[in-house]
Structure formats: C-alpha cells, structure tokens
C-alpha cells in the first residue's frame, strides 16, 4: 500500500509537470471591446474585425467577450452588439465562436456613423460589464481615435472606476488637426492615460495591429 501511495504521488507530480503551462493555470479572462462608429472612423471597422477574430481565437472555455459600439450615448446595454461567456465544453465553445463571428460580420456590414462620440460612457459600461464577469484578467479595448465628442448636456467629467482593468487603446488614428499640431494627439493620449490610471486601471496603446499577439499579455 505504501508503495502504491508512493507511486501515485510520483506519477501525479510527473504527469502534472508534463502538462503545459497554459493548462496548469486556467485563469479566466474577460474582454470588452468598444468600436468607434463616429464619422469616418467606420471605415476602420474592417481592422476591428481582424482584432475580434484574433480575440475569438485566443479566448477559451470560461472566458467572456463583449463588443459594443461607441455612439452618441454609449452608457447603455443597447450598444452591446454581441456578448458571450464561453461554455466549459470545447465543442460548444466552437459553436459560440461561430455564432459570435456571424453577428459581428453582420454588424460591420451594416454599421452607420453616429453623430457624437461618447467614449467615457462606453468605458463606464465596459467597467461594469468586466466587473460583473468576475474574471481573473479584465481587458477593455478601445478601437477609436480617442477624440470624444459629447452631446450637449451629457456629464462625463467624473472618475470612472476601472480597478484591475487593463485598458488598451487600439488603432488611435491621427486627426487632421493632429497633423497641424502633434501635441494635440499626445495630450489626448496623456489625458486618457491619466483618467484610466486615476480610476485604478492600467493603460496601453497598440497602434501596430500586426502585433496582436501581445494584446492579452499586458
């Protein structure tokens, strides 16, 4: 019996060390992606589709993903285009990914530009969603030029709670005015960084979409 216990312990340790690291550490992840649909930025949505596909490939059982648009009033569940928490069974996960992709393809084909750009509302909505998921790693991806254009009367100048959320700004395109004075672009990025960090989150900018492999390893 002693021998059997010894064998069991040795075999268990060796077998488990034989598994790869990813399998040993199944941390759940949640991603909330904001798509800017204001003005001419809708032309960039094809790039967003690539990012969403990459995210779908990277996420596994137990992970959550939601994609929402940034429009005139983004602090609303109605702006969520698609959201899913992947099932524990791998076969179901594949079906969920297919369905999600179909929804996103349909949205991108029919997307129309909005009059205003409420980024703060979108981030607030993202923070709520990500906190609700209870995931170990939380990511808020902002696919936007980060130029906020609020509707008259909207109040957004308050602290957005983003504790333990990694905020990644993607494809932050330069505006025409940025070309006149590049400091505008830098100030815009800096302002958002400060706002995110004040809310307890971390900040990163990824403009080179060829380097998506580092997206979820902030």
């Amino acid at each position: 019996m002693k021998n059997l216990i010894l064998i069991s312990v040795v075999m268990s340790v060796l077998l488990l060390t034989g598994c790869n690291e990813q399998e040993q550490r199944p941390k759940s992840r949640a991603v909330y992606m904001l798509l800017d649909t204001s003005g001419t930025y809708t032309e960039e949505l094809a790039k967003a589709q690539k990012i969403i596909n990459y995210l779908l490939m990277s996420l596994n059982s137990g992970d959550s993903i939601a994609v929402a648009r940034i429009d005139s009033g983004s602090f609303s569940e109605k702006d969520i285009i698609a959201k899913v928490t992947f099932d524990s069974r791998p076969s179901t996960v594949n079906e969920q990914k297919r369905a999600f992709k179909r929804k996103m393809d349909a949205f991108i084909e029919t997307a129309r530009g909005s009059a205003h750009t409420d980024i703060s509302g979108g981030i607030l909505q993202a923070g709520e969603y990500l906190t609700e998921t209870g995931a170990d790693e939380r990511y808020a991806l902002i696919f936007s030029d980060l130029e906020e254009d609020l509707e008259k009367g909207q109040v957004r100048d308050f602290l957005i709670p983003l504790v333990d959320i990694k905020v990644i700004a993607l494809n932050v395109t330069k505006l025409r005015s940025d070309n006149v004075d590049p400091r505008d672009y830098l100030h815009r990025l800096e302002a958002w960084e400060q706002r995110v960090q004040q809310g307890g989150g971390s900040w990163k900018v990824v403009n080179d979409l060829e380097r998506l492999d580092s997206l979820l390893k902030l």
């Binding site: 075999m11 077998l15 034989g18 598994c19 199944p26 596994n60 059982s61 137990g62 069974r89 996960v93």
Partner: peptide, 20 residues
Amino acid sequence: GVINFQLIALPMSEMVGGTS
C-alpha cells in the same frame, strides 16, 4: 504517461467541463 495524458486531457473537458 504524459503522452497518454495529452491524449485524453482535452476530451475530458467535454465530460467534466473545462473551467472547473
């Protein structure tokens, strides 16, 4: 044993779930 483990670990997720 490790090879055997790799063979059956993934489909086991279908039976007992991949997240628990």
